[in-house]
Write a protein that binds this DNA or RNA. Structure first.
Lengths: 213, 213
DNA sequence: GGTCTCATGTAAATAGTTACATGATTAT
DNA sequence: ATAATCATGTAACTATTTACATGAGACC
């Protein structure tokens, strides 16, 4: 029975030093956003939970900086570190993916190929934007994190994103080309089994396809 | 306020023809497992909900085949098709990813590089297995779905997986190599604040250049 | 004076999984 | 006989997001 993954994300950040829930949220947005997110609704309760389980202690005050309320920082304990260590060594389940774009594509014969095409194009724009952000992150890391013992690991996660995004962009182009071919060539002409024509025409009108309502 | 994505997955399957919750679960496992999953706890309630909202009607009996209970099939209505159509055209939010392997890697300086290395290796095994399954799916589709109007779309989603997995496997090798270098070269080299040197050298391919400062 | 950001937190809603209850039929 | 599979469904739990309440200091 796998326990809450948020636990470990938060423990991981606390391993860098004492910080508050607010800090964690901000850092998550800047550092792991591409493969991990957390919301306040997760973070604050888990921090309280840590103090109950002895994985962290609350150190009020702290840096203080420029804040309205008093800063509630949390410091990881030995037990907290042990728990983090355990998780880092433990087997990792493959991620459960849910990709809505692919789901739409999967059912896209219900619409004209142009619709699927626009979806892919929009997806490509999104990925391109992520790639741009990735480049920024890389130069930021390389210019002011030199020598950090964390850096090699951070670069590994960054590289994952880079390689994956490049692949996805390749696919986008391939997919757009395939959909263009579908849009022009295919209505009923090609394949076997005579009944294909309908798919291309589908949008034209509502006729009965043997299904009543 | 985006409504439940499960809704559309189920509508999509019903667009193929009347089917039961059980059918949907089985088909999901065989067809979309790589980018979409659903559980009974989602499917059955949503089917009931469809009858209330007029997106599908219940057609008891149906194929019947070999079943214990009476088969409860659901048939999509015109309103259901309209809703599916709307969703297919609607803008798609980028997927929120949560990749636990990358999260572990991100915090892996808390353990020896060998730990991260094993995690990546295990991940590679998982992806390799998925790739094998993907190949099976491809030959299955190509041999007995020829001429289906859905085929081009299915192949697109399949291709996405293929391209992405190839990229991920490339990354795995790169990552293992990087972690091996980390394990041998750097133990204390980077430790202190003052030495930017070590990190910069790390990029050099095979350290014959005396990379350990 | 207004609004922005810092900051902590909670409540409610939504999403999703897991485990179980039930029971008929089919294969061994 | 019994195990497996077909099949439907629910309850409880876990996970996660969103929206809101609160309030202080900073900035214009």
């Amino acid at each position: 029975m796998r326990t809450n993954r948020t636990t470990y994300a938060v423990l991981g950040f606390l391993s860098w030093g004492p910080m508050s829930g607010y800090d964690i949220k901000k850092i998550v947005e800047r550092s792991t956003a591409n493969f991990w997110t957390e919301s306040y609704g997760q973070i604050y309760p888990i921090l309280r939970n840590f103090t109950e389980r002895g994985l962290a202690v609350r150190v009020s005050g702290g840096t203080k900086a420029a804040s309205g309320r008093e800063r509630q920082a949390y410091q990881i304990t030995e037990r907290g570190r042990a728990e983090l260590d355990r998780w880092l060594r433990e087997a990792t389940d493959p991620p459960t993916v849910r990709n809505e774009l692919l789901l739409k594509l999967f059912f896209s014969r219900n619409v004209e190929p142009g619709v699927a095409r626009s979806q892919v194009e929009e997806f490509r724009r999104q990925v391109t934007e992520l790639a741009r952000q990735g480049e920024e992150t890389r130069s930021r890391l390389e210019s002011n994190r030199q020598g950090s013992p964390d850096l090699p690991y951070w670069l590994l996660t960054l590289r994952f994103g880079e390689i994956q995004r490049a692949a996805v962009l390749t696919w986008c182009e391939e997919a757009v080309a395939a959909l263009d071919r579908l849009a022009t060539a295919p209505p009923g002409a090609t394949k076997t089994k005579g009944d294909r024509a309908a798919a291309g025409k589908r949008r034209a009108s509502k006729r009965k396809d043997g299904a009543k309502t």
